[in-house]
Design a protein around this nucleic acid. Structure first.
Length: 1047
RNA sequence: GGGCGUAUAGCUCAGCUUGGUUAGAGCGCUUCCCUGAUAAGGAAGAGGCCGGUGGUUCAAGUCCACCUAUGCCCA
């Protein structure tokens, strides 16, 4: 027996019960355990940074990470799901720094690295709890007990091992390069970290005169100066040279004000507003080695200050002459090195100019601009100064503007494996596909070496030991380190500062080697998870081999340069194979107004609160099925509320309906019901749709298309509720086993297909309808298999026929509405014209009759042609294929024909011949035409695209009395409902009337009325109401007085 | 400046892969209808130069090019 299912449901409360049940019964563990031995489908959890509070965007990714593993499990795969936490890195360090009120590295050093790192560890543990709670609440099944932590010694040793592989291949090297550097954090950043932190800022854009000092040039052009453009005036302090493009043209011009300037010819119009005179033009090559006077001589830069040549110089903006400061520009450094120019860096690692420097000494580099601009204006060197807004890289965590800064750093030479990476990308399936060749492919094509090291504290220490002679030793594990160090260090925490204290005799020269001071980019940690999560190669070698590479990973789009990249890069570096095959890449979540969610704007939707208000299923369904997952989407209470009403409650109420009437009629799913093929056509239709649903949703999920799957599911639920149940209600009241069994089966398929999407409500339904009636059913819907498709039950023809029925019903309702004859008033006859109508079975036609409350529906052709109006239009789709550019001529000829005659000819001979000007005789079949037949006046007509229905509005006395009876039934039902009677309660009806029509209707239809309203007695009252007649029934526009009472 | 998306009803979005002459859904609004599961359902109406221009084609919301706006990513 089904459990009772109340019509009203509190979804969040239901979910809490289901959560408790899952935990009590260990359902997740059981689902993984019961699939042991089945083919694996490998999923990698991208570890969230255990820092800060989880947001709605975390829920988004986690919904997708949940739905596909659940689906694959139902499809018979073994899908272990190991959680993971990203523990290291700047985010954590900064959080702790803030808590402690620190402003920089010197504070940390003073505080003590050991204590600082233990604070970091403690902060990680705190935040992981919040993520675990959110994960649990939303029903994301991932094994948090077996989670990998990137700070675990085992994990770190796996990372070390992989770094040693890369080191041994000669791809891990130290180099002195200009790289983005955060002066506040005191460390260089990698390219993908740079990608996280562009912010819009207003910077000065200055055009500065650099007076030429070459005597020969000055002789020809007295007082000439190079015009140089820069947006970083502070770097002018370190000016070393000017770069010109060798192939570009440069002009020596005389300005309106009479001064002589050298600029790129292509830029003259952009730079000068007033007319100028061109004195001479020359190529960049001719400018080479010309000397000039630099604007500031605050620091010593020997043997410098002349024009150098560089191909990268552009003549599209600026002046075509680029100021060179090799300490602050990667390209500058390369160019200046080629000329043997010195690299002078007046800025200290903390981002401030060295104190001894005039004017800017001790100032933060960005802040120096203002003073320098004042000085330039005072000295007359400033040609033009405007402010402009552009995006500039900032530290992704502390928001300090970055500085491009020459510094020694460790690199992984990813450029050396670029071709391999591109080849791996070829093998990878991206969803959406545009990412593969677009954003991600583009990123790979512009690959630069990975700046791996960080001059920080809380991270995986770089496992390289160096002796005074510079010999390098990479170490793969604590065991290996013990061996090299000559003592057992295996129980020592591999973090700083403890690991720093371990020294070894250099294996090459025997001198004492110390670890290099750097830690590594935490993005390397997460990218190493495919093997480090299981501690490979020190342990679990077999497990690792079985789950590499992943079948599926999923994150938001910001990870293209983050995790998606580091995973692929490390996999390719270490195993020469990318670590994932399919990657789903989600768009970002925005607020209701399309803005990014941020604490600053106060528009953050807190996920637990959201789920406790609407339910986790609602949030999940929204994420999966509403809008395109690839695209940025807006989330708000209204949108999620819609989802609940539209889909989840409709589904729930269908379940509730089935439970209600099955229980009333004491029906059990095991009871005998006719075989599906023996059931009424509408049952066969809904079963066909259900099978099709299981097949189509399967195909959609196979392609990771949750949006399509969601649309299929909600359409099915709507069809089930608002057509199948609506049309079959009477059969349910009567306890028809065919109807009950059909709805049971349809709901079973829908519930199974829905289970990965909305695991809570489907679990409850599973328990109430299926588990309660089938002792062999799995104890959870999530232990069940994907529904089997019974191909023999799929009937495409039935699908199109039913679609026609529903279109005709729609037209009929429109016709009723326009005629003003309400549906309650029975009508005698309707005439239908539509292609396919004549082939429709009587059962299907009956659906139209019942729904429209019409006794008979006939084909228009059977009803006599006297009142038919015919229009014939060309069917372009069909004609276009045959006639191409002659289509309009044929269409015109069709329009010119008499429709009735053409149709008559067509009907009798199956085809018709038309004379078309310019073509000759053309043979047409009915498929070439859109025929619309409608009835003439006196009927209520509705027509659309070749289909029409006409209602005979004649209301005979008999029909009027039938309408009256229906009116009475409806009024009594209404009263039953408002007075709170149960649908199964029996009543007595008392009535009185003097109206002949009513008297006659009661005689004719009394039995029907009694049966409809579950009245055991129908009493005509003469005089006073008996005591039992309690509740008055209002029957509008009808001359009857009515009361009902209990039996 | 470059790359990749996006642009369809007041709002949120389908449709575009595979071109077919009346472009859909939901929410909201107006007026009706139906209702013995439903916080539902249905009909009609108001509301669309399918961002713009040009091209391909007998035919373009759909394919192509350019432009504009906007988002993300990068320089």
């Amino acid at each position: 027996m089904y459990r009772p299912v109340p019509a009203q449901v509190d979804l969040p409360a239901l979910e809490h019960e289901v959560l408790a049940m899952w935990e009590r019964e260990g359902v997740f563990a059981a689902s993984v355990a019961q699939s042991q031995g089945k083919p694996p489908w490998v999923f990698y959890e991208g570890p969230p940074t255990a820092n800060g509070t989880p947001g709605t965007h975390h829920v988004e990714a986690r919904v997708f990470k949940d739905v596909f593993p659940r689906y694959r499990t139902m499809k018979g795969f073994h899908v272990p799901r190991q959680a993971g936490w990203d523990c290291h890195g700047l985010p954590v360090e900064l959080f702790v720094e803030r808590e402690l009120g620190f402003t920089g590295k010197q504070d940390i050093e003073a505080y003590g690295v050991a204590e600082f790192n233990s604070r970091c560890r403690e902060s990680v543990l705190r935040h992981v709890d919040e993520f675990t709670e959110m994960t649990r609440r939303m029903g994301y099944w991932v094994d948090t007990d077996a989670a990998y932590w990137t700070m675990d010694p085992e994990y770190i040793q796996s990372v070390w091992w992989s770094l040693k592989q890369i080191f041994d291949k000669g791809l891990l090297v130290q180099d002195h390069r200009v790289a983005p550097y955060c002066p506040r954090c005191g460390t260089g950043l990698s390219d993908h970290e740079l990608a996280q932190g562009y912010e819009s800022v207003i910077d000065p854009s200055v055009y500065v005169r650099f007076p030429v000092t070459n005597a020969e040039f000055l002789e020809r052009y007295p007082g000439a100066a190079f015009l140089v453009w820069t947006t970083t005036p502070w770097t002018l302090v370190a000016n070393t040279a000017i770069a010109a493009k060798p192939t570009a043209d440069y002009a020596v011009v005389k300005t309106a004000a009479g001064e002589t300037l050298v600029v790129g010819t292509a830029l003259l119009e952009q730079i000068f507003e007033e007319p100028i005179t061109v004195l001479a033009t020359m190529t960049g090559t001719e400018l080479e080695n010309l000397t000039y006077q630099r604007p500031f001589d605050y620091v010593e830069i020997p043997d410098a200050h002349y024009v150098v040549l560089a191909d990268y110089v552009t003549t599209e903006d600026g002046t075509g002459l680029v100021h060179q400061a090799p300490a602050f520009g990667a390209e500058d450094l390369i160019t200046c090195r080629a000329y043997g120019l010195p690299v002078v860096n007046p800025v200290m690692p903390d981002g401030h100019f060295a104190p001894a420097i005039p004017v800017v000494g001790g100032e933060f580099f960005k802040k120096a601009d203002a003073g320098l601009i004042r000085t330039l204006k005072a000295s007359g060197l400033m040609f033009k100064h405007v402010d402009y807004e552009h995006s500039y890289p900032h530290c992704w965590r502390c928001h300090t503007p970055l500085i491009y800064y020459a510094q020694p750093s460790w690199y992984i030479k990813t450029t050396a494996i670029k071709d391999q990476l591109l080849a791996q990308n070829e093998q990878t399936n991206w969803f959406p596909t545009s990412i593969k060749w677009g954003r991600y492919g583009d990123w790979l094509n512009n690959n630069v070496d990975w700046a791996l090291s960080r001059n920080r504290y809380w991270g995986t220490p770089l496992p390289i030991w160096r002796c005074p002679d510079g010999h390098l030793t990479a170490v793969a594990s604590m065991a290996e380190l013990s061996e090299l160090a000559g003592k057992d260090v295996s129980s020592i925490d591999p973090h700083r500062p403890y690991v720093d204290d371990i020294t070894m005799p250099c294996p090459t020269c025997g001198l004492a080697a110390r670890r290099v001071p750097e830690v590594i980019d935490c993005w390397y940690d997460s990218g190493a998870m495919p093997f480090a999560a299981v501690g490979y190669p020190l342990q679990n070698a077999e497990t690792f081999r079985n789950q590499y590479p992943a079948d599926f990973i999923c994150e938001a789009i910001d990870q293209t340069r983050g995790w998606f990249y580091t995973l692929m890069a490390i996999g390719t570096l270490v195993f020469e194979e990318s670590s994932y095959k399919n990657v789903v890449c989600l768009g970002h979540i925005l607020d209701e107004d399309g803005r990014k969610m941020s604490k600053h704007l106060g528009n953050v939707l807190e996920p637990i609160g959201l789920m406790n208000e609407h339910g986790a299923d609602a949030l999940r369904w929204f994420m999966l099925a509403s809008g395109s997952p690839w695209q940025a989407r807006r989330v708000g209470h209204a949108a999620i509320g819609d989802v609940v009403r539209k889909t989840l409650l409709t589904y729930w109420n269908t379940v509730s309906f089935l439970s209600l009437y099955a229980r009333l009629s004491k029906w059990e799913p095991v009871d005998l019901a006719p075989a599906p093929s023996q059931r009424p056509v509408i049952d066969r239709w809904v079963l066909s749709e259900a099978n099709q649903l299981a097949r189509d949703v399967d195909a959609a999920l196979e392609k990771f298309d949750t949006q399509l799957a969601g649309r299929l599911l909600s359409t099915f639920i709507d069809n089930l509720s608002n057509w199948y149940v609506r049309r079959s209600r009477r059969r349910f009241w009567d306890g028809d086993p065919a109807a009950l069994a059909t709805l049971h089966e349809a709901l079973r398929t829908a519930t199974l297909c829905l289970a990965p999407f909305t695991p809570f409500i489907t679990e409850r339904v599973w328990q109430d309808l299926f588990r309660s009636t089938d002792p062999d059913a799995p104890k959870s819907v999530h232990l069940a298999s994907w529904p089997e498709v019974t191909a023999s039950e799929i009937d495409k023809r039935l699908g199109t026929d039913m679609a026609l029925v529903r279109r005709i019903v729609e037209l009929g309702r429109a016709a009723r509405a326009s005629s003003g004859v309400r549906t309650r008033q029975p009508l005698g006859r309707a005439l239908v014209s539509a292609p396919g109508w004549s082939e429709l079975s009587q059962q299907l036609r009956d659906q139209v009759c019942e729904e429209l409350n019409i006794s008979t529906v006939e084909s228009l052709d059977d009803g006599g042609s006297g009142f038919i109006e015919t229009t014939v239009k060309a069917n372009f789709r069909s004609l276009g294929q045959r006639f191409g550019n002659q289509t309009p001529a044929v269409a015109g000829a069709i329009g010119a024909e008499d429709p009735a005659a053409l149709l008559a000819a067509m009907r009798s001979a199956k085809s018709a011949t038309l004379l078309v000007v310019g073509i000759g005789e053309v043979n047409l079949t009915e498929a070439d035409l859109v025929i619309t037949e409608t009835a003439r006046a006196g009927w209520a007509v509705a027509a659309d695209a070749g289909e029409s229905i006409a209602l005979d509005l004649t209301i005979t006395d008999e029909l009027r009395r039938a309408g009256l009876a229906r009116e009475i039934v409806r009024a009594i039902q209404e009263t039953r409902k408002t007075s709170g009677l149960d649908v199964a309660d029996r009543i007595s009806v008392y009535w009185t009337s003097t109206d002949n029509d009513v008297l006659e209707a009661m005689t004719e239809h009394g039995d029907m009325i009694g049966a409809e309203v579950l009245a055991l007695h129908l009493n005509q009252v003469d005089g006073d109401w008996p005591e039992a007649a309690i509740t008055a029934v209002e029957v509008p526009e009808t001359k009857i007085e009515l009361r009902i009472g209990s039996v």
